[in-house]
Design a protein around this nucleic acid. Sequence first.
DNA 1: ATTAATTAAATTGTGTACAATTTAATCGTG
DNA 2: CACGATTAAATTGTACACAATTTAATTAAT
Lengths: 151, 151
Amino acid sequence: MCFALYSASLTMTKLYKPLLQKLGLTYPQYLVMLVMWEQDARSVSELGERLFLDSGTLTPLLKRLEAVELIARVRDTADERRVIVRLTPAGRKLQKQAQVIPKQVSCATECSLPELAALTRQLADLRAALFRSIGNAGKPAVPISSNFTNP
Amino acid sequence: MCFALYSASLTMTKLYKPLLQKLGLTYPQYLVMLVMWEQDARSVSELGERLFLDSGTLTPLLKRLEAVELIARVRDTADERRVIVRLTPAGRKLQKQAQVIPKQVSCATECSLPELAALTRQLADLRAALFRSIGNAGKPAVPISSNFTNP
DNA sequence: ATTAATTAAATTGTGTACAATTTAATCGTG
DNA sequence: CACGATTAAATTGTACACAATTTAATTAAT
């Protein structure tokens, strides 16, 4: 299953590549733009929470989006630790060009919309389950000295 | 759906990390070892066909596995273009240590085995559909001069 | 009010992915 | 046999991912 997941994900990214190239975006950059179109003016950590990515991934990605003037990055004056990301006019304008992409991708999947919705929920549930497991591994719910083991 | 796929895949890799660290492997390296345990003495392109990865990804990965002496890379004497990958004794020995991993991962998914099997097939089908779509875009089935268009 | 702890980004270093190109070997045709 | 086409790996350059660390700003506890 893990390999099927891994290679389906890589293949999906490959499918997006030519579609997104017309917009000058990579797939992770497109995800950031989707989240920004959903709501403007977000901090880096808010983006990270939505996308499950950390600053080590986002910071260079956001710098690239800033370099092509799709977003602007400014320190939050109220809290100088935070960096607020905003869409530029070009960034907002790009949304219209991007609107055709979901249909093209959905067509390539050869799945019906209900099938896609079901698969989406399964994958989201899976991610949540894996997160719980990782969380438990990182911070065990029970001290190491416990005598209990998983059934 | 695409985002669910993308983030589930990244989370899966994160789950594997601590498990594989005990074996000194990354997830893609583990995939290569799984394929090698399945059958020894494969060329780089055979590995690439199994894993849907190209030489640009595999060559440095295989060099790292060679550096830790889990595999050996030798030119095929019958065809000097090919490089044959073989397990070392240490590489074969590692299989035993790796046997516990699938159960640990399956447990973390919180899915039954039939559920996992069903999801695996869905993801494999999805990957195949995406491949078809990419293939058609990359190498059109009909010459450029054709008058035909897709329905 | 200081100082210690925490938090948010950025940085560093390692390891994929992959397009595009290069190098070298083999194959196919005349 | 020759030589252009093809094939297999390797190389180059760009862009993620993420653990671990660092830097700077804020909060908390005394």
